[in-house]
Design a protein around this nucleic acid. Sequence first.
DNA 1: ATGGGTCCT
DNA 2: AGGACCC
Length: 616
Amino acid sequence: MDGVGEDYRRRAFAEEPVELRRAANELATTSTTTLQGEAGWCDRLYPLQEPRTKQDVSKAVVVHLDLDCFYAQVEELLDPSLKGKPVGVTQKYLVVTCNYEARKAGITKLMNVKEAMRKCPSSLVLRSGEDLTPYRSYSRKAEALLQKFGPVERLGLDEFFVDVQALVDERLAAGEVPQHFRGHLVGSGTSVRADTRFRPQDLRSGASSGTLLDLNPPVGAEATEEERRLAVGSVIAATARGELQQLLGLRASAGITVNKLLSKLVGGLHKPDDQTTMLFKDADLFTATLPVRCIKGVGALTEQKFKSIGVHTCLDLRAKTVAEISKSVTKGNQELAKFFHLCSWGIDPSRVVPKGPPKTVSVEDSFKSLEGYEATMKVLKSVLVPDLLTRLREDCDQHQRRPVTLTVTYRTMRMREKKHFARKSLSCAFPRAMDTPEVSEACLALLRKGLGGEAVFAMTLLNIGASRFTDFKPETGSRRPTTSVATFKAFDVRDGRRIADGLTMKRRNYGKNPSLLLSKQQTRTLASTGEIPEPAESRATPSSLPSIQSHFRSPGGRPSQPAAGRRSAEVGLGIDMEILKEMPEDVQREYRNALGSRKRAREGQGGSIRTFFAKK
DNA sequence: ATGGGTCCT
DNA sequence: AGGACCC
């Protein structure tokens, strides 16, 4: 390995921002790979081995949206008194995410709770984020909102890809060409760094240039078709972000390019609450210096395999053949090798695919040490199984289905010694009677089988999940909005205590801050009633927000809950006009267009959004 | 590491 | 059933 290239790689994605053009030039001249061409840096970036695909003339426009520090934002919405304060969201002993006020104080994602409290002893507010219910709820609302811009693919709870190609076509056909790109535009002068050493795929714009030239750049009269298309895409992204903010109170960052890979990468450059566009012609330069870890599907293991054949950056990868990659990295999977290879040029042929209802529903908890069948059964019966059944009841209401398979996954101390992420799982038919006693017994039976004769064991993780769903019509005629008792009999009567805390769970000292000692449910009730309640059985979603129930009803039929859809539109009309006036002219027009379309849709006269849905 | 998920083998 | 990957 030559010294200069190595030194560059160490620096480039750790602390210092690196200007793309200079970095690419340096890499091209010092890469372990011999590149052909005598001309300037640009020629040297093209090993000329692989044909360029047609993506550069593609008409695709893909928007990637990322809800900023999502859990922390939701906590602020649930408890507005948190606004302006540094907020951290915890799971077990970790601050899994925090708001930007907390980041200013030096708190980072995945920081130890103790360390966070040391950094910010007086003002930091911590909230437990172990119950994902409110996050799922807001995530679904965000997804439903984004549907009107095009097909939506979710990635986790806080990220979405939206294929806005059809909407862009519609706008261009109507003669709409914005005069400016909205937000930032990546150019050859853009400098890029990694957000953290640990996540080279989280790119940020370097602060070194200090130029604002890339902000709201004009769309010239001689603009190419791609420029015009992406400019429209940037306007759509701005509208989508504006609506997430206005209708749901959620701030988001966005990336706008011709494919998923690039949109996600550039979307991270300017955060929070901002957006970035990039033309495909700049993708070569942009991706050249990126570590292969930035490619979707390249995790820690694949990264190591790449390193073993001297591939660190996308530029290194370009100079390898698909056959080499297939042999040394992807275990003979040539399609995957080809995909990685294309990605190294910033070409991502994968489409935006709406994922539909979840394929699994699972709950898990981790423990310092959970010993013996009796204690395990207690955790199952009082916590995990009731939680799973609650989730399944909601799932059944939304999708008219029930699970066929029950899976138990666990980890013991012994397994941990070998590989610290190793888990063992076992499955059986999901019990016909979906109640706590039956399901708990089935879980325990699976655990006994998995643990063999082991009488003594120390479990550190326990997960129970439902999968392989089958159509199932809940009994009709019941006035209950939820599934009938015939199928989910014996609604679990819980004693309401999360007894796991009384066992041998990891228990951290949260100090004397009383807010840290409240569960999320208690905090919520405290906010509304002023009383600290016993933990409740059901965790309702906030009712003040527009319902998206209609989104989950089968397509084709008339909306089964027309009231819900109307409510959503009313909120849309309720955008604060004072705020709207503050916004750029284009944005104002966007809003009026969108709202006008919705109004027309309600009046049955069509409109672009209506038309868009009608085609599906 | 957490509490989830997806897809592939 | 387990692995690799994603958030």
